[in-house]
Write a protein that binds this DNA or RNA. Sequence first.
DNA 1: CGCGGACCCCAAAATATGCTTATGATTCAC
DNA 2: GTGAATCATAAGCATATTTTGGGGTCCGCG
Lengths: 302, 302
Amino acid sequence: MFDSRHIKTFHQVVSSGSYSAAARELGYTQPAVTQQMKALERTAGVPLFTRAGRGLRLTEAGEALARHAETILGSLAAAQQQLGALARLRAGRVRVCGFPSANATLVPEAMARLLADHPGVRVELTEAEPPESVQRLLRGECDVALSFSYVGAGNAPVPEELAEIPLLEDRLTVLLPVGHPLARRHAVRMSDLAEERWIAGCPRCRANLLQICADQGYAPDVVFSTDDNLAVQSLVAAGVGIALMPSLVLAFMCHQKVTGRLAEPHQFRRVSAYVLREHLRVPATAVVVEELRLAAATRAGC
Amino acid sequence: MFDSRHIKTFHQVVSSGSYSAAARELGYTQPAVTQQMKALERTAGVPLFTRAGRGLRLTEAGEALARHAETILGSLAAAQQQLGALARLRAGRVRVCGFPSANATLVPEAMARLLADHPGVRVELTEAEPPESVQRLLRGECDVALSFSYVGAGNAPVPEELAEIPLLEDRLTVLLPVGHPLARRHAVRMSDLAEERWIAGCPRCRANLLQICADQGYAPDVVFSTDDNLAVQSLVAAGVGIALMPSLVLAFMCHQKVTGRLAEPHQFRRVSAYVLREHLRVPATAVVVEELRLAAATRAGC
DNA sequence: CGCGGACCCCAAAATATGCTTATGATTCAC
DNA sequence: GTGAATCATAAGCATATTTTGGGGTCCGCG
């Protein structure tokens, strides 16, 4: 098969009209061009040039190859341009899979920065609760997974091929109706909430709630469980019970009659992004992770 | 720029699904493929593959390059096919420049063989008298020149860059009206023709006629000169005079009232083909020369 | 659950390939 | 004829590329 370098040199020779000129243009010495053209003629099986005094003339085969050279170099350049765009972050598609409260807060903030810095990068966002998002990552169904874990809980170890990027420590708050006796305090003690009715969130959150209450010496009265953060808020507003929720969820609090108070003792969940280590070398993926990190850092106070 | 070999290997990897399989297909060892793909990723600036257990998976950039690889390899193959056709004589155009009597005899015979053996080769035939055809060859206006020279005459030396391919020795004949007293003999002596009126051909032929007659001790009475062989024949038929003509011309004798008799002593012209030496490496040109040589050999008896 | 096969990666040595330098030969212009 | 510019050739050297040899991981199978 033809060597693309030979084709390029050949094309330059044709447009320059001489070996020496082509060599100057391409930064070769003249004998290098001579050898390349000799090799090209060898693989072609036909002479491409004929000597015309001090200059060159193309044979019929040379004319034919010159025409083909245009399209060959064109298709090579097209490929190079597209890959260059991907490398220089002028293009790229990243599939992010996050959990609801991050998708409503961290992710949009990161996307705003991303759009400003790299308008060519496209993101596809899907939603899954923590254990699932990392599974999807391992199955190749997404490029970046957002997950969280509760500090005390026995968390499954992170597989070796995954890189963990800690984003923030999301403090837990107690959601109370505004009229609740403890709602006026800045923070509430978990030990003061043994007699409350509780609304629990996702399975992990529920498990964490039970763990914390057990540490305080009681078993909470969980009257309701749901994945849906907005439903939890509405239930609290309706007086069904109180809830333990990460601060991130407060960012989209939409009930006037519900308020959040920091839980005591300090409780938090660790929010992290996960990526296949090798995917960190993909520019678009790397930049999305970086923007997530920055977005998390700027709201560090949560 | 991308190396076409890398593209080819990459394409094979994509269609085979693994480095090892691609290596087997292409006759490499597996580490060679690994390194080629590594180099390809280096020039691309983006990872192309991601590991998926025992197999591989393409990144977005890999998918893009796979699409481009099709067109790149396609255009390379197209070029290779066309040049291969030229090399294998399935195509090619050869410009032949000959003198009239050869164009009417040798060339058509050679073309018939050529058409049978190599249907793809195309020939463009032009006509010029001897000194001119070689000039055209040197100016690059044709690829094969047919020329002739008279033995005794001082012929211009053949330039070094030209290859001379002797085709045949074309014996000279005397053209006589059928009623002529000497027309019954098998051959006629030039010395018996001192009193005839003569019709001369092209300048070289005319000079040769004068030379031969001078050798016989007389100066011929040249009443007419023309390049046109058919005109010469008609003039002889009309009784204007007799002529000395190469045997080749007899091949297209169209007058019943004219006959040709070998001249004595033996006279002939050397008919040769000329090619630029480097053009002998062009298959189509070489085959045309070869067919001319064969055509001349089969009619060696002239 | 251990085992073998298939796969990939890595590092070093052997081999090829390609480039450069130096030199010679030719052509063309002044 | 001389000088500038061209291409061809040969030898030396640098860089690539391939192979070789070894190791690790994943998966299916007994």
